[in-house]
Write a protein that binds this DNA or RNA. Structure first.
Length: 567
RNA sequence: GCGGCUGUAGUCUAGCGGUUAGGACUGGAGCUUCCCAAGCUUCAAACUCGGGUUCAAAUCCCGGCAGCCGCACCA
């Protein structure tokens, strides 16, 4: 792309899409303000995403706190693994990535902890590459923002580095709200934080950013999706980790095992549809499959939606099958029962062996302890008691020997109506800021220094500009009425009576407003106004009372010609 | 975090030891029957911050901060 990244950023700053945050204090890297147009564009993108995921697919939208206590990220692995390790030279102060120095000394240095890595470096007498000085022990730089909850030392907490964990820890609530059925999904739109070493490229890598994440909890053996039938014929540009880039139908990709399951394939389609709906250029989109070694070790399959923008191919969305890893991790650390219950078609009769205490024998032998001993016996695995003439149990810290006359092995029949299972998670994770930037990037057009943002009506912050040709002779009053009628219809309108008419059209073109309505001298005699289409600059005349309907039709994609039929 | 380059109105820029710091665009107020950044009048608006050198610094030097590019990183 030959476009200068500065051009678009400068437009964004000039017209109120984006401002560098805290500018009057010198700014802060990786933090941006959304101006009025940026905030509106962001909201429009969010709302379309909601329309697809919440209204379209029935996901539950929830909102979780941004701050979370440390154990949450202990469980997720972020406290230990979401960090880089550094060593410093004790004489010249140069810093190195510790795991990089260990390359060649170990198969996968990234998996080592500080002590192991420190030992590895010491044992191999690794020194400063510049001055041969001694190195400090490895230190961690965790990419999470640390804080604390409460007064004094408080309780260690972090700003979330992704919105996902809030949904994993709420699995049981979501499952219950969804009437205890799989699949069930939750979504969350919100802020996340990463203390990036080096934020770059405008909105592409921020320290505080916005995510739209969906977590779909599915049965591990039933990764199917009924609506997949409707979309399997759709061709999507794919870049698999084996073989060349190709455009193929999702059905074909699924059947040839390029995409590992139907659910994943469906959400790849939904992501593609979302992207094209909000105006990303299909010719500059592709789905890239993660390389085997690029994928998290637990992930089953992962596809990124990438857009080609001024900075090159950039990841906007990750659609991953994460298996049961996340839920499993929270089960282990919290000891909560984050499982779904799978009901069998028919309850099964299961024969189960158990140790049954004989209280008539226990009583005389153990007196007051007999009850506790009986309970301990009942918990013994049957195999450990079978055929033995005595067993040992521990009651109140005391080891007791119990003869076989005090118990028997019973076969118990139980009705089992289902089983517990840990759901697998399909995670479509959208980087909202990157998506917003890409929408602007793909919409940016420049011809002889005349800039037009070709934003789709669906996402355009302002839907229509309303102008009097001249701000006098009563034209301004009529234009004011038209403005009010359009606003009352729920459409974002912008009134402008300053400067020449051409300048006003240009202002609207530059912020991506799809159409403009102008009140002129003819309006006074016949009540018609002109409606101008941004992309063709063509105009039609319609009755001023029909403006709101016409604008609604235009922004949902009707051609300008069809508008004149409203006359 | 490392290396290179760069910081002048909202934006793009001129100035490279002594300037009332210049222009263009944008923006505001007005004039003009004004439909594609037209014209005219008029107004507003800037030297990234701190230290140093010098009689004198936007300009030279050092440092901070910020940006861009490359390296590294990207769960």
């Amino acid at each position: 792309m030959q476009m200068d990244p500065q051009e678009l950023l400068s437009l964004c700053k000039r017209r109120g899409f984006l401002w560098p945050a805290y500018d009057i204090y010198g700014g802060a890297g990786g933090l941006y303000d959304y101006g009025p147009l940026g905030a509106a564009l962001k909201l429009n993108i969010e709302n379309h995403w909601r329309a697809l995921y919440v209204r379209g697919e029935g996901f539950q939208e929830i909102q979780c706190p941004i701050i979370a206590p440390e154990p949450v990220f202990k469980a997720s692995g972020h406290v230990d693994a979401f960090s880089d390790m550094y060593v410093e030279c004790t004489s010249c102060g140069e810093t190195y990535r510790a795991d990089h120095l260990a390359k060649g000394l170990h198969d996968n240095p990234a998996t080592l902890n500080e002590e192991q890595l420190g030992k590895l470096l010491r044992d191999n007498d690794v020194r400063c590459e510049l001055c041969k000085g001694e190195l400090t022990a490895p230190k961690r730089f965790n990419l999470m923002f640390k804080t604390s909850i409460g007064a004094g030392k408080g309780k260690t907490a972090y700003l979330r580095p992704e919105t996902a964990q809030g949904m994993f820890v709420n699995f049981s609530q979501v499952y219950r709200y969804g009437r205890e059925k799989l699949p069930v999904g939750a979504v969350q739109i919100g802020r996340a934080f990463r203390n990036e070493i080096s934020p770059r490229q405008g909105l592409i890598r921020l320290r505080e950013f916005n995510q739209m994440e969906a977590e779909l909890f599915v049965h591990p053996d039933q990764k199917t999706w009924p609506k997949f039938r409707d979309v399997e014929g759709v061709a999507i540009p794919l870049l698999p980790n084996s073989g060349d880039a190709r455009t193929m139908t999702l059905g074909e990709a699924f059947r040839s095992k390029i995409i590992s399951n139907e659910v994943l394939a469906y959400f790849i389609w939904l992501t593609y549809r979302f992207a094209t709906d909000i105006g990303l250029d299909p010719k500059r989109l592709r789905f890239r499959q993660h390389e085997k070694n690029e994928m998290a070790h637990y992930a089953i399959d992962c596809w990124d939606l990438e857009a080609e923008i001024v900075y090159g191919w950039t990841e906007l969305v990750g659609v991953a099958d994460r298996g049961s890893y996340d839920v499993q991790a929270h089960i282990k650390h919290s000891e909560a029962d984050l499982t779904a219950f799978e009901r069998f078609d028919e309850p099964k009769e299961v024969e189960q062996e158990a140790v049954k205490p004989k209280y008539e024998a226990l009583g005389p032998m153990f007196k007051g302890k007999a009850k506790a001993v009986g309970e301990a016996l009942g918990k013994l695995p049957p195999a450990s008691a079978r055929g033995k003439d005595k067993v040992e149990v521990t009651v109140g810290g005391e080891r007791l020997t119990v003869p076989s006359s005090c118990f028997e092995i019973m076969v118990r029949k139980e009705k089992v109506s289902g089983r517990k299972l840990v759901p697998h998670v399909i995670e479509p994770s959208y980087g909202l800021d990157r998506i917003l930037y890409s929408v602007l990037d793909h919409a940016y057009r420049k011809k002889d220094d005349y800039i037009t943002l070709g934003l789709k009506g669906l996402v355009a912050p302002i839907k229509v500009g309303v102008f009097p040709l001249m701000a006098k002779d009563g034209l301004d009053a009529i234009a004011g009425e038209v403005f009010d009628s359009v606003s009352a219809a729920g459409l974002e309108a912008y009134y402008d009576d300053s400067g020449s008419i051409g300048r006003r059209y240009a202002r609207m073109d530059e912020i991506g407003t799809p159409c403009c309505v102008t009140v002129d001298y003819d309006t006074k005699s016949d009540g018609t106004v002109t409606v101008r289409d941004r992309d063709s600059a063509e105009q039609v005349r319609i009755q001023k009372s029909l403006v709101a309907n016409a604008v609604s039709a235009l922004i949902s994609g009707s051609p300008l010609k069809s508008i004149s039929a409203l006359r």
